[in-house]
Design a protein around this nucleic acid. Structure first.
Length: 273
DNA sequence: AGCCAGGCACCGC
DNA sequence: GCGGTGCATGGC
């Protein structure tokens, strides 16, 4: 099936670092694995084409996954008025949408992301899926909590998790009720997630933003730190805490969207690097 | 060869 | 509460 989209770009949305389970097939054509399904999706201008997909499954999974119901025109309008810098970031990659992913997969993925590079993160997640997850059609789904309970440090290290193996096991063994904690306010959810060994401010913010629809967070990683210092702090060394507070104050409920636009621009333009 | 990566725990102060 | 250091692994 195919639909018409606006304020959406498949490449920007997938390649902006929020998700890891996709492969580029050709220009604007991707294989995506999520919610125990695999999908080939391609974009041609305003047309978004889903291969071998019926409507029911589109509405059950992918409409929500790609956040296609939200009016990003309105969000961009509000953020664009904040200042010139954000306006530039939005014009630079106005087709980014915040993907709504599975919380457990997102938690483990961003534990793996720490002190790591995106191609390596993708490889480790693929290794874990192939070892513990179910085969879908051609690809492997990310394992459930129950499936990952079969793992130990040694077998995870074989997936190249490195020092993060013990963190993954701690996350798995807490038997988190994701449906339940979803209702917690942002601050409480953050505190709860940070009790997990290997989960700090950055990882918990990413999990909240990319899988719990908490848009009032502002994950600060090396890139966001650089781009914020560069534009808002006269290129001077600034603590993550100060950057967070500045962002909450300035961007409010839309901080998460602002973060994605800024992160993407920083990385592509290599600002501060 | 050594440095560093979508950070974090752990340690000193 | 702050700032410094080690960490598995692989690409450059």
């Amino acid at each position: 099936m195919q639909i018409e989209v606006k304020d959406f770009d498949i490449e920007e949305t997938l390649e902006c670092g929020q998700c890891f389970r996709f492969e580029k097939i050709s220009n604007k054509k991707y294989l995506v694995i999520a919610h125990k399904k695999e999908l080939i999706v391609e974009q041609n201008e305003k047309k978004l084409i889903f291969h071998d997909l019926d409507e029911a499954e589109y509405f059950r999974i992918w409409e929500n996954y790609f956040d296609l119901k939200r009016d990003y025109g309105e969000i961009k309008k509000i953020l664009g008025k904040k200042d010139k810098i954000l306006k530039e970031a939005i014009e630079f990659a106005g087709g980014i949408r915040l993907i709504s992913q599975d919380p457990f997969e997102t938690l483990i993925s961003f534990i793996i992301s720490q002190n790591n590079r995106i191609p390596m993160i993708k490889k480790v997640i693929r290794n874990i899926s192939e070892k513990y997850g179910d085969k879908i059609e051609n690809e492997y789904a990310f394992p459930s909590v129950a499936q990952l309970k079969k793992a130990d440090v040694e077998s995870l290290m074989e997936c190249k998790t490195g020092f993060r193996a013990k963190y993954i096991l701690d996350a798995v063994n807490r038997d988190i009720d994701f449906a339940d904690i979803k209702n917690l306010p942002t601050a409480e959810l953050r505190k709860y997630l940070m009790e997990i060994n290997g989960v700090g401010p950055k990882v918990s913010d990413c999990v909240m933003l990319f899988s719990f629809n908490k848009y009032d967070v502002f994950p600060v990683d090396v890139w966001v730190k650089r781009v914020m210092q560069y534009f808002y702090f006269e290129n001077k060394e600034t603590s993550i805490k100060n950057i967070e507070e500045f962002a909450y104050e300035k961007f409010g409920d839309l901080a998460g969207f602002a973060q994605q636009y800024l992160f993407h621009m920083a990385r592509i333009k290599k600002i501060g690097a």
